[in-house]
């Protein structure tokens, strides 16, 4: 009897701790997502909003099975999707290239300097995103800092168009996402047992072989983790292309924004957002599979 009252009390505690958050997330997180999913299958209303009719043509318009009576399939949407995918992947690769060597150097510093370096890397993460992007407008525009340096070094004779290009978007994203990539990679590098590297050298592997067969596989979890948390916000980004891509380079994010705040075709915008979600879920699915496979080894090691 005393056990059951104890049980009831614990249940009450659990309810008090978990209840409010559960309610909140159900209303303001799960519910909107479900509604958005439903919306993506509704017919766009004439003046914004949606009609309660099942309407797969939002997707058809993007993927090519639209009923021509209602919507026109336009390959431009797939092109924008692919461009977003490409920019996101290039961003991931560039961020990794920037962060990986630095992580090694910093992990080998004496601990005081190491902490200071980590502080310096995380600090910009706390600074306003829009401010950090705005700086790159100043640097990349025609009369900006980069052109000033290039012309004064006589690398170019007249200022070149650097901003409003895919390159500008990638630079902006790399700049903004450095902490996202650096910290997971650094965590892996920091954990690296250097005696394994010496063992590899002792067994006759040269520098490259040691890197490729020992160092890289051991730091792979950090590389993959960092790549995913850079890829996800890069894919659906609309701020960076809006600021650094101008109207010239459009990504999925801008297209979605346009549908919501410009064209007011919400169901179509919702369908585009579902496309972003699907890509993200696919990536996460593969990541979980990767983690699970890695996890299988763990009990053996223990």
């Amino acid at each position: 009897m005393s056990t059951s009252s104890l049980h009831r009390r614990r249940l009450a505690h659990l309810g008090i701790l978990l209840g409010p958050a559960s309610g909140f997330l159900a209303i303001f997180f799960l519910c909107p997502l479900v509604i958005m999913l439903v919306y993506s299958f509704l017919e766009p209303g004439l003046y914004g909003g949606a009609e309660w009719v099942f309407y797969p043509d939002n997707y058809g318009r993007i993927l090519g099975f639209a009923n021509p009576d209602f919507e026109v399939y336009d390959p431009v949407y797939i092109a924008i999707f692919l461009r977003s995918l490409r920019i996101a992947l290039v961003t991931v690769a560039a961020t990794l290239l920037v962060c990986y060597p630095a992580a090694f150097q910093i992990s080998r510093l004496p601990s005081r300097w190491k902490n200071f370096a980590l502080f310096l890397i995380t600090l910009p993460f706390f600074a306003s995103l829009i401010v950090r992007l705005f700086i790159w407008v100043l640097i990349l525009k025609k009369t900006g800092f980069a052109n000033m340096v290039l012309t004064s070094l006589h690398i170019v004779s007249t200022p070149v168009e650097l901003i409003y290009t895919e390159g500008a978007i990638v630079i902006g994203m790399v700049y903004v996402f450095i902490p996202f990539m650096f910290l997971p990679v650094y965590a892996s590098v920091e954990k690296l047992d250097w005696s394994l590297v010496r063992a590899s050298q002792d067994l006759g592997a040269n520098g490259f072989q040691t890197f490729w067969r020992v160092i890289f596989p051991l730091t792979l979890p950090g590389v993959i983790g960092g790549s995913i948390i850079v890829f996800i916000p890069a894919l659906g980004n609309f701020i960076v292309p809006a600021v650094l891509g101008g109207a010239k380079v459009m990504m999925l994010g801008n297209l979605i924004e346009q549908q919501f705040l410009g064209a007011r075709n919400w169901p179509f915008g919702a369908a585009l957002a579902m496309l972003v979600m699907a890509a993200v879920l696919a990536i996460l699915f593969f990541y979980i599979r990767f983690e699970a496979r890695r996890g299988d080894d763990a009990p053996v090691l223990r």
Partner: peptide
């Protein structure tokens, strides 16, 4: 989930909601 959700998706979902 909310951390892994692309901002824009959550943003428009909340707008519709």
């Amino acid at each position: 989930a909310p951390m892994l959700m692309p901002d824009i998706v959550l943003g428009i979902a909340l707008l519709i909601f």
